[in-house]
Design a protein around this nucleic acid. Sequence first.
DNA 1: CCCAAATGTCTATTATTCTAGACAACCGTA
DNA 2: TACGGTTGTCTAGAATAATAGACATTTGGG
Lengths: 249, 249
Amino acid sequence: MVERQTGVALWRQIADRMRLAINNGDFDETGMMPPETVLAARFGVNRHTVRSAMATLADEGIVRAMQGVGTRIERRDRLSFPISRRTRFSQGLGNQAHDIEGRMLEADTDVAPAVVAQALGLGAGTPCVRIETVNSADKRPISRATHYFPAERFAEMAEAYERTRSITAAFRELDVSDYVRRSTEISAIHAEGDDMRHLKLSPGAIILVATAINTDLTGIPIQYSRTRFAADRVKLTVEPENDGIGDPG
Amino acid sequence: MVERQTGVALWRQIADRMRLAINNGDFDETGMMPPETVLAARFGVNRHTVRSAMATLADEGIVRAMQGVGTRIERRDRLSFPISRRTRFSQGLGNQAHDIEGRMLEADTDVAPAVVAQALGLGAGTPCVRIETVNSADKRPISRATHYFPAERFAEMAEAYERTRSITAAFRELDVSDYVRRSTEISAIHAEGDDMRHLKLSPGAIILVATAINTDLTGIPIQYSRTRFAADRVKLTVEPENDGIGDPG
DNA sequence: CCCAAATGTCTATTATTCTAGACAACCGTA
DNA sequence: TACGGTTGTCTAGAATAATAGACATTTGGG
């Protein structure tokens, strides 16, 4: 049913579960949510509590309540984001969304944090270009990313990205015709602060964190990224290596 | 700082953030948490609220409060679980833990759910062996999994697993000397019900869900799994294909 | 031995969340 | 138009979470 005294309000637990059920396609036959009284009985809570939950789903644009009629499901999709040797953001989402857009929030050049320097095989204190982006699909924010590039080789990265709105295209302008993913680490945290705001999440929502290293075709690391995905809007799909690209190693 | 009126109790937000900070190695110099009064000031809450948060961390065995002294950090590690073409549970964790153990909770043979049948390329209504497992490392539960195997070919799977406590070894007993991963999908949900209990999580905690399909070396699907990882104990690492195994076509 | 600094425990109060019930407003349909 | 089923709104009270303050207990060190 629903768990009490756990530090998570009942309405939030219910909202999370209904969001999941909707994404799961559970109410597809009718396209409507069950009536509030039915949900209240099912979860063993008061109708008002269910209403709080539905209000947040309505706020997120997932359902729409219509007086006298019921509550209709407005959106149920969870985008599938492929992770492979040749992961690219917009290509990956392909035809799942029409309107795929990257926006740069911020960029600067500064000494790389220790983990980044190590991942990129740079000495401590080496400067890196840092770019903060938000990516949206069909006008909904999907992910937020922090990218690092060695400043010596990619001094113009921020400008190139601003111009092209694509990492792949920016690399191409800077004479990297192709690149591959060396590693991806995936973990999950609760949304907070900036990410929460930019991804339009409510606190308690889940963020999938993918930390990736890309290399050029000679195996030299050229990019370190930390991408935060709104977990209720995407799933990550780990693909086998069938991209038709010859092994560069 | 910390967000109010969000459906997530302050003590839980603080617990989540401290757990993350500890996993992050933030207090490694001293091995001690800051005093409760300091944390209370930092988060802008009452000391009692911080105490609630610390109590749950103590409960999880992450910290230990010592009167008159302070609160010591007991454990800070997050296991790294590799996902690749040759993902295997115990091998993957390798030397990160001493005591890696799989336990079978339940097994039966029944008609496969639609998604499973489709993933395994079986007709609707085909029977499958279902096995429920819990995996632990160093006596802490790490993941909970539901595995499906086509019943015709792997009728003895449950017995073989019970005997060997390993999927790989069980396959070997059933004449599958090797197998590879075809696909892995990763998403994240909030813990609830059975998973919460078996993984010893508190509600609101995050679960990483990895849905995988394995095939034998001729490409025939032999296993469908849905593994739920406690997100505060593991990260998933997506590996490049460097295992030295020839492409099976 | 005594003190400073920590955690442990208790009481009281306030704010927030959840429950309970009643009724209004609205929609589709008979 | 009347009615059943639904969402919307209001009031009141109970349960839970958070704050506030005081003081006890324990430890390590001067």
